[in-house]
């Protein structure tokens, strides 16, 4: 009744079963050896698969360019229309020039999340390093964009002119803190949600090995969690994108 994911001898393994829910997130070199900055790892593999999947949908799926779309073309057009409408509605009409970047973000996060749900897959978006780079890129570009477009007027974002004058400095401090907390929550939300879901699925899968005759109960639970994770994968991609749009709106129209 032992569940060892890796051939390590550990204390818990002797007493019963050992579930190592975090092992699935390990970064490993594809061809052995140490992990240096350029080594092809499972990160490389799954990011490449993400690019392939996104390209398959958006290019191979939409290859017909038909007036009456096929199924794949419909899906590609739906993704396009969905993100386009989101950018237009949330960030405003003049944010449309950033649409390709927002769309790239959406596609990357969506397909990384979905591919990560394949059993034995590696979820690139469950790593804080990855999501932090994405979030901080958005944060810095949006901040720089705000200063380029509006100069010092961009600081009006922190000066709540509708509040009483005495309250404004306090509010400014709060706004400033919440502004700098944005990339942190932006990245940790995605990585945390992905990590949590996968870890829970793994823990329940470990229970199935430990329960013997009652193995079906955790399997049912895993099935339910899997459906929930599918939902979470899509919603987190949506949330990541829509928050990018919200931050973009603040940079384009900083009036508070």
């Amino acid at each position: 009744m032992r569940m060892r994911i890796k051939g390590t001898t550990d204390v818990a393994g002797e007493s019963g079963f050992a579930i190592k829910p975090m092992d699935q997130f390990e970064v490993k070199a594809l061809f052995g050896g140490d992990v240096s900055w350029y080594t092809p790892t499972n990160v490389t593999l799954w990011m490449a698969l993400t690019v392939l999947a996104a390209s398959a949908l958006m290019i191979y799926g939409a290859r017909g360019r038909a007036l009456v779309p096929s199924r794949g073309q419909s899906a590609a057009e739906m993704a396009y229309g969905f993100v386009y409408k989101m950018v237009e509605d949330v960030a405003g009409k003049d944010a449309v020039r950033f649409f390709p970047y927002v769309f790239t973000l959406f596609m990357f996060v969506l397909f990384a999340n979905l591919l990560g749900l394949i059993p034995f897959a590696f979820t690139t978006t469950s790593h804080i390093a990855v999501t932090a780079v994405l979030a901080f890129t958005v944060f810095f570009s949006v901040t720089v964009l705000g200063f380029i477009l509006h100069g010092t007027k961009f600081l009006g974002l922190f000066w709540v002119s509708s509040a009483p004058l005495a309250l404004r400095p306090i509010l400014a401090v709060i706004e400033l803190i919440s502004y700098f907390a944005r990339p942190v929550s932006h990245s940790i939300r995605l990585a945390g949600a992905m990590m949590a879901g996968h870890a829970v699925v793994k823990v329940f899968a470990g229970f199935a090995g430990a329960l013997g005759i009652f193995f079906f109960a955790p399997i049912l639970a895993v099935t339910a969690f899997y459906a929930l994770e599918l939902l979470v994968a899509v919603i987190q991609a949506y949330v990541f994108t829509i928050l990018t749009c919200v931050y973009l709106k603040d940079a384009l129209h900083p009036s508070h």
Partner: peptide, 12 residues
């Protein structure tokens, strides 16, 4: 592993 991930993320 951060440098590796960040490098491949940027490439991707």
């Amino acid at each position: 592993t951060f440098s590796n991930q960040i490098f491949w993320l940027v490439v991707t």
